[in-house]
Design a protein around this nucleic acid. Structure first.
Length: 457
RNA sequence: GGCGGGUUAGCAAAGAGGUUAUGCAGCGGAUUGCAAAUCCGUCUAGAGCGGUUCGAUUCCGCUACCCGCCUCCA
C-alpha cells in the first residue's frame, strides 16, 4: 500500500508522492523559546517524528527543517502588546538572548528524553533577519503591503485565495472579530514588520528599509522555508491551532512573493487535552517533561500514550492514562527483552504494519498489531526481530532497553540472602518474616527458579 | 456571531455495513510454600430520536451535550 496522508489543504486523505523522487522536504513549525515546552506542545513534535519515521520506512530521504522562534511574537492579540522574549527577559532578569539559548537547550533536552529525532536543519529567526527583510521587499514589490504608524502590513483583501487552508469565512470573521482593527484595513491583515516604539528600547531590534524594528510573527517561517526548502516543497506541519491563522498567513506571503502555496501537503497535529480543557502556557501552570520525571514516570511512557491515539484526534491526558501507558510500556519492554536474540523479521506482519502506518499514520492500530505479534505462534527470535522493526516507527527505544539493575544496599542484600536461604530450607515462617522486613524497607523480592530479583518500591 | 470536530464499555482509544480492536483496570483459572511476575480465559460498549438496509455502533437527517479555532498558542 502506498503512503496516504491527510492533507488539510484538500481536507482529504490522498496519496503522497514526493516532488523530487526519493526525497521529501519537510518543514515543521518549531517552538517559541520564551519558556519551557509543555507536554501538549511536545505531542505535535511526537506526531512529526512519527511522520519522519514512516517516511523513512517508505524509503524516502527526509530533509527536515525546524525553526526556532526566538524573536518577535507578541504576548497579546491585535498586533500589539509585549514581545514574549522581552517579557521573559523581564520575568527572569536575563537578556532576551540568554533566555532564547536557555529554552532552546531545554527544548532539545525534551526531544531527547522523548526519543524524538532532531531535524536536519535548525534555523533561528534571529539568524535570518536579512532573509526576512528581502522576503518582505518581494511582497512589497508585488503590491500587497501598506504602512501604518506601527508597521508594514499584509493586505489580505488583495488575495482572492486568502484563508483557503483554514476555510476562512472572511465576512463572518469580520462580524465576529473580538479585536480592535486599529489602523489595519481588515481583521485578517497582519504585520510583516513592526516598528520599535521610539521611547521603548528593545533588546532585539534591527534596521530595515522601513525603519528600526523587528519582523512580524509569520514571515520567519516563509523566509526560512524558502531559504532551506525552496518555493514549493512536500510537507508543512504544525499544531491544529495553526490551521486558521499562522499557516494561511505563511501561505499568503509565499503566494504573494513566489506564486506557490508553499507546500504540497499541510498536516496538523491535534491537541492534548487535560480536564476537558486545552493546555496553555498563558493560563499559568503547565506540564513539563521534567514534572513527569519528578513523579517517577519514564518520559517514553508519554510517547507510548501518544501512540495510543491518532494524531488527528485530540487526546485526553490524566495521570491515570499515563499510569496505564507506563504499565503497558513496562510490560512491552520486559516481554520483548525476554524473547532473547532477534533473528528475522516476519514479512507478513511487517507488511501489515506498513498498511497501518501508510494509512495516514495509524499508530494506534500499529501498536495493537505489535501485541498481536507477541501473542502469535512465531518463534521468539522472529517475534523480537519483528517488534524491533516496528519500533523503528514507534521510537520506544526497545532495541537498547535493558531491565534496570537496581543498586541494592548491603543490609538489604543480606536480608534477601537470609530469606533465600530460609526459603530453600523451606522455613516458610522465617522467609515470610524476612519478606516483611524487606517490604518495610521499601524493597520487594521476586523468587525465581534459580535466583531472585530485587526491586525498590 | 462565524467555521470545524467530537459523543464507543470502569479509564484511554481504533477499525470495519454482517466476522475478537488494542492497552490499562476488574473478574475466573493455571503456576507459585505464600507473594510477585508470567500465561490462559472472561464481563462491562458505541448520547437520544428517526431514516436507508435483509442487517447500523459503522451511512443519512434531526435533537442534546462536549470540544477546538476565529486572540500569542503545538
Amino acid at each position: 500500500m502506498s503512503l496516504q496522508l491527510y492533507d488539510t489543504w484538500t481536507r482529504s486523505q490522498r496519496e503522497f508522492t514526493p516532488l523530487k523522487p526519493g526525497e521529501v522536504g519537510l518543514y515543521t513549525c518549531g517552538p517559541t523559546v520564551y519558556n519551557y515546552a509543555h507536554i501538549g506542545n511536545l505531542r505535535t513534535y511526537l506526531f512529526e517524528d512519527g511522520l519522519v519515521r514512516v517516511l523513512k520506512l517508505n524509503g524516502y530521504r527526509v530533509n527536515h527543517v525546524m525553526n526556532i522562534t526566538d524573536v518577535g511574537h507578541l504576548v497579546s492579540d491585535g498586533d500589539d502588546g509585549e514581545d514574549k522574549m522581552e517579557a521573559g527577559s523581564k520575568r527572569t532578569g536575563q537578556t532576551a538572548w540568554t533566555i532564547a539559548a536557555l529554552y532552546t537547550d531545554a527544548f532539545r533536552a525534551d526531544l531527547k528524553a522523548l526519543n524524538i529525532q532532531e531535524p536536519d536543519v535548525w534555523c533561528k529567526a534571529t539568524d535570518n533577519i536579512p532573509e526576512q527583510i528581502s522576503f518582505i521587499e518581494e511582497i512589497e514589490k508585488k503590491g500587497y503591503t501598506y504602512r501604518t504608524s506601527d508597521g508594514i502590513y499584509f493586505d489580505t483583501s488583495k488575495q482572492a485565495s486568502y484563508g483557503h487552508l483554514g476555510r476562512l469565512d472572511i465576512a463572518g470573521l469580520q462580524a465576529g472579530s473580538r479585536v480592535d482593527l486599529g489602523e489595519k484595513k481588515h481583521s485578517t491583515d497582519y504585520a510583516l514588520w513592526k516598528f520599535s516604539a521610539p521611547e521603548d528600547h528593545r533588546q532585539m531590534e534591527w534596521d530595515s528599509p522601513w525603519g528600526r524594528g523587528f519582523p512580524g510573527w509569520h514571515i520567519e517561517c516563509s523566509a526560512m522555508a524558502h531559504k532551506y526548502l525552496g518555493e514549493y516543497f512536500d510537507i508543512h506541519c504544525g499544531g491544529e491551532d495553526h490551521i486558521t491563522v499562522h499557516h494561511p498567513n505563511e501561505i499568503s506571503q509565499t503566494e504573494a512573493a513566489y506564486g506557490t502555496r508553499l507546500a504540497n501537503f499541510w498536516m496538523h497535529g491535534y491537541f492534548l487535552i487535560t480536564n476537558d480543557a486545552k493546555m496553555s502556557k498563558s493560563s499559568g501552570e503547565f506540564l513539563r517533561v521534567q514534572l513527569l520525571i519528578d513523579k517517577g514516570y519514564d518520559p517514553i511512557a508519554y510517547r507510548y500514550l501518544c501512540l495510543t491515539g491518532h494524531y488527528r484526534t485530540q487526546l485526553s491526558f490524566s495521570w491515570e492514562t499515563l499510569d496505564a501507558a507506563q504499565t503497558g510500556l513496562d510490560r512491552l519492554r520486559n516481554n520483548v527483552y525476554s524473547l532473547g536474540e532477534a533473528t528475522t523479521v516476519d514479512a507478513g506482519f511487517f507488511e501489515r504494519l506498513m498498511e497501518k502506518l501508510n494509512d495516514d499514520l495509524n499508530f494506534p492500530q500499529a501498536l495493537a498489531l505489535a501485541f498481536e505479534v507477541l501473542k502469535s505462534g512465531l518463534a521468539p527470535g522472529v517475534k523480537k526481530a519483528t517488534i524491533l522493526k516496528f519500533d523503528e516507527a514507534f521510537g520506544l527505544g526497545l532495541t537498547s532497553w535493558v531491565p534496570k539493575i537496581e543498586d541494592v544496599p548491603g543490609d538489604v542484600r543480606a536480608l534477601a540472602e537470609a530469606r533465600w536461604t530460609a526459603r530453600n530450607a523451606k522455613d516458610w515462617a522465617e522467609a515470610d518474616r524476612l519478606r516483611g522486613e524487606l517490604t518495610a524497607r521499601g524493597w520487594s523480592m521476586k523468587d525465581g527458579k534459580e535466583d531472585y530479583t530485587m526491586t525498590s518500591t
